[in-house]
Amino acid sequence: MTLTVETAPGQKLYRAVVDALRREIETGRFAETQLLPAERVLCELLEVSRTTLRKAIADLIAEGVLFHRHGAGTFIHRATPRVEQPSSRLTSFTEDMRLRGLVASSRELERGVFLPTPEEAMMLGVRPNDRVFRLGRLRLADGSPMAIERAAVPIRFLPEQDKVGDSLYEALSAGGFKPTRGLQRLRATLLDPADAKLLGVAPDSPALYIQRIAYLADGACVEFTKSWYRADAYDFVSELTLSPPARKAQR
């Protein structure tokens, strides 16, 4: 039985092979093993040359879909569920995972009340001698590490820090300080060795770095969070609409 390789107009053959392999991996074609079949077998299934297949596999390794172990073969990354997160909605990690049928959990990396760093003071609009509650966590979905979050909240919004559980937003809402809007900035980055170890990936693996500021209804800044999301586990999705045509000025 062959695998279907659909080539779009103008698309290079090896990119069509990339799409075909990714589709088969995601739909469970190779679910019985983590080891990708041998090159000879794949070439027969895909009806392509080894040169084309190797270029496709190299792309999938670069994307984090596959990884290669010298002397052992090419393997499929399976442990981490892939998540699509709308970037236009202000939600907590716990809520995001719950909506997708995944069980959210955390491993605390840091918790306590501190003087703000210069960056925290600037972002939160607090004075250098004000106090902030800082919470650093490794976020997991169904037991798989997904993201590192380091949040800071002005202490006046969290007078009972011991009641902060899995969801920071639930604790804020319980105290009457529910965030209503946010501003976040995303960029690509590479993970340093310490963060890569926490996320279970190789050093210098790609990640999505996000800075988020959340506000209350009255405009007060309630949260400043820096996060590092595994690039092989998260897709951030935005809904776009076409602006109406500009009207000509009437004379």
Rank of each mutant, 00 (worst) to 15 (best):
L45D: 07
L124C: 12
R137L: 09
H70Q: 13
K226N: 07
Y169N: 07
S49D: 07
R100N: 04
R69K: 15
T241M: 00
T80W: 06
E170G: 06
L135Y: 12
P179K: 01
R187C: 14
T33C: 02
G200Q: 12
D195A: 05
G165E: 15
S106Y: 10
A56G: 13
R156D: 12
P118M: 13
G71F: 05
V5G: 05
A56R: 09
V132T: 06
A196N: 04
P203V: 08
S173P: 04
R230S: 09
F236K: 06
Q211K: 09
R156H: 13
T225Y: 01
S238P: 00
G10Q: 07
A231Y: 01
A217R: 15
F157G: 03
D192F: 03
R98P: 01
G136L: 08
I57S: 07
V103T: 15
I61P: 00
E149P: 00
P159L: 13
L240P: 00
G200A: 11
L198N: 04
R107W: 08
A62V: 02
A220T: 13
E119L: 14
M122I: 02
L35R: 06
V153A: 04
A8M: 09
K12P: 04
L21G: 03
L140E: 15
G176C: 14
T33P: 01
E6Y: 02
A79G: 10
Q11L: 13
P128V: 06
T91Q: 03
Q184I: 02
R40D: 13
S173G: 08
S106L: 11
G165D: 15
T91E: 06
A246D: 05
S243C: 05
D142I: 07
L90K: 05
V126H: 11
P179E: 03
P206N: 04
R212P: 04
R89C: 01
G125D: 11
L183Y: 11
R89I: 04
P9Y: 06
R107V: 10
K55Q: 14
P154T: 14
R98G: 04
K163D: 11
L115G: 07
E47V: 03
Y234R: 05
I210C: 12
A56H: 10
F75H: 03
Q250N: 08
V222C: 12
K197F: 13
F30I: 03
V201Q: 05
A62F: 09
G143R: 13
I76Q: 00
A62C: 08
E239M: 02
L208W: 14
I210Y: 02
R23G: 09
G71N: 06
S243P: 07
L191F: 11
F93W: 14
S144V: 08
L35I: 01
R127Y: 08
D195M: 05
A188N: 04
R134S: 08
V17N: 05
Q250W: 07
P245M: 07
A151S: 15
A31S: 12
A151Y: 09
T2M: 06
R78W: 00
F67H: 14
Q161C: 05
A207N: 06
E44V: 02
K163L: 12
L66T: 03
A38Y: 10
M123Q: 15
L90M: 11
S167W: 03
A207Q: 02
